[in-house]
């Protein structure tokens, strides 16, 4: 697989990444040289500059690394506020930001969570660009 063959089915592109995610598979780039995990996958490793990046399924389980609650949302998410967001450290080493399906007061650093995937809501589709309309939304659920 070379960069010049990238098309929308390639998981190193966003359409390819989200197509796999819609099927429940979280794909990450993994650097063959330094083992850095890149979420979502991309052609080059930001840690070391290598272009030897493979694409591998990632564990959907992880722990809360940091978290907060959004009280002043962008217009598209106004109806949801306040909502909890977190940076989650996944079991395979990558980190990913996402919503958490829990109240802020019930979340702590270190909590176990699992990534789940749902279809976008009507307001989310409204706010989406044309090519994003069917991309799934990931949400972390507490274990």
């Amino acid at each position: 697989m070379t960069d010049s063959s990238l098309d929308a089915t390639d998981p190193r592109t966003l359409p390819g990444f989200f197509a796999a995610l819609a099927d429940g598979t979280l794909l990450g780039g993994v650097c063959a040289d330094c083992e850095q995990v890149l979420l979502p996958p991309r052609p080059a490793c930001y840690a070391c500059g290598s272009r030897a990046v493979t694409v591998e399924p990632q564990s959907r389980e992880g722990r809360i690394f940091s978290y907060t609650a959004v009280h002043t949302p962008p217009p598209a998410f106004a109806a949801d506020a306040p909502y909890t967001v977190a940076v989650v450290e996944l079991a395979d080493g990558g980190r990913l930001l996402g919503r958490v399906d829990a109240d802020y007061a019930d979340v702590s650093i270190g909590d176990s969570v699992e990534l789940t995937v749902r279809e976008p809501t009507a307001p989310e589709r409204e706010a989406a660009l044309d090519y994003e309309t069917d991309w799934p939304v990931h949400v972390f659920e507490q274990q």
Binding site: L14, L39, T68, P73, P74, Y83, V85, R99, E132
Partner: peptide, 13 residues
Amino acid sequence: RAIEQRSGVTAPS
């Protein structure tokens, strides 16, 4: 855009 904006984060968050 792909992950952060679509999760509804803001500058303060």
